[in-house]
Simulated assay, not measured.
Amino acid sequence: EAGGLAHLLPGYRLVKNPQHRAEVEEFWGLKRGQISPNPGLTAWDMITGLEDGTVGLLWIAATNPAVSMPDLERTKAALMRSPFTIYQDAYYPTETATYAHVLLPAAQWSEKTGVMTNSERTVTLCPAFRRPPGEAKADWEIFAEVGRRLGFVGEFAFANSAEVYAEFVKLTRDRPCDMTGLSHEQLRSQGPTQWPHPAEEMGRTGDGEINFTPPPHHKSPSTPSSKRLYTNLRFHTPDGRARFGAYHSRGLAEPPDPDYPFVLTTGRLYGHWHTLTRTGRIEKTRQMHPEPFIEIHPRDAARLEITDNQLVEVRSRRSKTFFPAKITKAIAPGTVFVPM
């Protein structure tokens, strides 16, 4: 709902939708047509853009593409070609930091106040409980300072994260995720709250009790207090009816063949997350998962004469690496697993 993806605008709006662009342009005081109708680049498009020279500046925040991207050797070569790379992260050193021209230290979750929404639409205020070290700042502070230095002083004149959130919730008005009734102050006093939670008009009944009613323009698919949406069978479509789409698999982009007979899958471990930029520095989690491995089914291991914990070479069409084998029936024959 925050519009943080390349094809989205705040409030579940689409960049390609002219009405959505017009609404955001009006809110931000922009001239009509100033927001491009073309979605921004995906992560892989940025890599290919570095290769062909169409990307002249790369700003990386809170991720480690020198480890997490596919076709890693190609990714690293593209990062080397970047004319100017800004790397903004709470952790240092990381593999990606070595490709940066400028490093911007960012605050961790415990060092900045912000709002988090979980998968059941519950919005929670997460207050900071310690100061950021050194010159580290909250991400919004970094972006706002750069915006002001680029000349957009009024547009980025936020004093704190509560003001950033206040602007965001205004952009959710009349949208599926309407949160115009929320603020840092309300979340602090009221506690975690589900959206939709539109601004309510408050009046008093004849007996003096306070009566809350949604504004007349609000058309919710369910009541604001509902834990489950669409119980009234009204959906966020022009006619209120649900839309079902039939999608058919195109199969694997690189199906197994005699030279590469296995499908490699990746995933998480209980103790580690993403590229170990944080969890790899914690002794307890390092002891829990001290080294990477590759899971292989006993049938495949027997055919290849692989024994448990044996170091094996794993090769793809692009590169190769080595892992100790973990023989287990938890993985299907013909498939192997490596933790991210």
Rank of each mutant, 00 (worst) to 15 (best):
R234W: 05
G245H: 07
H248W: 08
L233N: 11
I282V: 15
S220L: 05
T237P: 03
P298S: 07
T275L: 07
T277K: 07
D239M: 01
L252E: 06
F235D: 02
A246Q: 12
I294K: 02
T266S: 14
Y270C: 09
W273A: 12
H289M: 10
K227S: 04
Y247Q: 12
D257L: 04
R250E: 11
P258Y: 02
R281M: 09
T279P: 05
G251P: 08
E295Y: 08
T223F: 03
Q287M: 08
P224K: 06
P256I: 09
L269G: 04
T279K: 06
S226E: 04
T277G: 10
Y270R: 15
M288G: 03
E295L: 13
H218W: 12
G251E: 08
N232C: 02
P221K: 00
G267C: 06
S249M: 02
R250C: 04
F293W: 14
S226H: 03
V263R: 10
S222R: 01
K219C: 08
L276C: 07
E291M: 12
R268K: 10
R243P: 00
P215E: 14
H272D: 04
P216I: 01
P258R: 12
L252S: 02
R228E: 00
S226D: 06
G245P: 00
R243E: 13
E291T: 10
F235E: 00
P221W: 00
P216K: 04
T279G: 05
P214K: 14
P261V: 06
P216C: 03
P255G: 01
G267W: 06
P216L: 05
Y270E: 14
H248T: 15
P256C: 04
G240K: 06
R286V: 11
D239T: 13
H217C: 01
H274V: 13
T277C: 15
P214N: 14
H297A: 03
L229F: 09
E254R: 14
S222T: 00
L229Y: 05
L252Q: 03
H218E: 11
S226I: 00
P261F: 02
P258L: 06
L264E: 11
H289Q: 09
P290K: 09
P258Q: 07
R278W: 10
T266F: 06
H272L: 12
P298R: 10
A242S: 10
G271F: 11
T237F: 02
F244M: 12
D257V: 06
S225M: 04
T237D: 03
Y247K: 13
Y260V: 03
L264V: 14
K219E: 06
D257T: 10
P292E: 07
T277F: 06
H274F: 09
P238I: 10
S222D: 08
T266E: 01
R281N: 10
T265D: 01
P215N: 11
K219Y: 08
D257H: 11
D259P: 01
R241Q: 14
K219R: 15
H248N: 13
T223P: 00
T266H: 05
